[in-house]
Design a protein around this nucleic acid. Sequence first.
DNA 1: AAGCCTCTTTCCGTCATACGGAAAGCCGTG
DNA 2: CACGGCTTTCCGTATGACGGAAAGAGGCTT
Lengths: 254, 254
Amino acid sequence: MSVKSVSRALDLLEALAVPEEVGLVELATRTGLQPSTAHRLLGTLIERRYVVQSAATGRYLLGHKLNEIAVAVAKRTEHLRELARPHLETIKKVTGESANLTVLEPPNIVYVDQVEGSRSVRMFARIGAAVPAYATAAGKAMLAQMPPAVVREIYGDAPLEQLTPRTIASVEALLAELDEVRERGFGVDREEQEPGVGCVAAPIRGDGAVVGALSVSAPMPRIDAADPAELGELLISRADAVSMSLGFVVGSRR
Amino acid sequence: MSVKSVSRALDLLEALAVPEEVGLVELATRTGLQPSTAHRLLGTLIERRYVVQSAATGRYLLGHKLNEIAVAVAKRTEHLRELARPHLETIKKVTGESANLTVLEPPNIVYVDQVEGSRSVRMFARIGAAVPAYATAAGKAMLAQMPPAVVREIYGDAPLEQLTPRTIASVEALLAELDEVRERGFGVDREEQEPGVGCVAAPIRGDGAVVGALSVSAPMPRIDAADPAELGELLISRADAVSMSLGFVVGSRR
DNA sequence: AAGCCTCTTTCCGTCATACGGAAAGCCGTG
DNA sequence: CACGGCTTTCCGTATGACGGAAAGAGGCTT
């Protein structure tokens, strides 16, 4: 943990990412800071419009400055989102399940768009949320497109964090599975990221590198009922369509 | 300027809010920091996923964590945006000019949604951007709904910053104009925020307080050609429609 | 292929400055 | 009117952020 005050200021921002206004003492408690410290840091955040203080209650909430900056992030994936959106809709229509667009931000994947499924029990991921790539179908689909040496570098030799009992435990096991994924063209996650939830995903390739992945996620029994292999074929066809509109010549393995 | 390192970290974030990746030295130059200082601060931002470092180039770009947090900000205005959107479309259709939805974040107004006009020369404001309320039609429309004492408190007795030669110069003059705005129901900005640009706006009221404003902005000659008074009537009718769908009983002054 | 230049990264001694305990305002409530 | 909770301010201390300098890493040119 490098610069303490910056880290603490970010803690405050994240603690404010809730629907209601939050009071100083509660913020301090949640972030483990002294009220006076929180107050000083908030002062700086307010000065910069990242935080606003309600005139009526004195409590704090996030300012719109954050949006101004987040727009710049969103612009980076705007083109990809536009191209992928119709295919997300298709996937949702065919399967009835939630369809996601993700990008790789090593060592994580990040959800950048989603179409929610029509079932009453459906998966939903907050846009912007990050999950370890090795624990997800989309992550595996994307990692499989990269040289094993790069994957090794991303994860080093520390053991992989176990999110569920079925999470892949070692980099060696991950690399072995990535071979399979590359072979068959799609990745699968069987309750590896969250108990009871499964996911199937295929990579979107631009010129030179993998740029994202399409995935479906659903309760594990429904994934099995739909047959992972068939879902895989659907996702490959949709992802390849996006790849092609990005100018990638599908068919050439890498 | 309160906490230096936090302030500098935010400088870095803002310097990264551009389409391309940025190198360390350039970032340091732009923000006026030493490269070693910038590097240390970036380390913290990277640790927290606010910034990502490209594996290929070593240069820096914003991470998706920002989106995750910005979503929380956007949610606060989601309902209002949904209600106002069709009216923005209408305003754009009738006038051909850009229509904006703004909220008050004293002492500024913030753009939270926009429909771009169809003319080749059209106004556009970045969503999330903030502008002093006293210099804009939308700001005046909203401030006019508040007790003068509150307005006085917001601006204190420091002279108002002059954004153009026509910007309102004093709080006294502002309060006088707010009386007029309240009387006729809409606010006007005649090149007060930006030379050559004019704006007309009407307030959206929820139960108890003003919650936002609708505005049209265009080059000054086109505002005059369309007749500010007529634009005002259009905006009032649209804004009142939004107010009504928020449960506000239109007709009662305050 | 070798060397140069620019960029990123690390190191470390100094002193500015962020920290946090404590006390002071400020409200709304009983 | 006094109490309890909140936000805000103050200030002495020592932590930890700073930045100069040097080392490491690529990428280009010659």
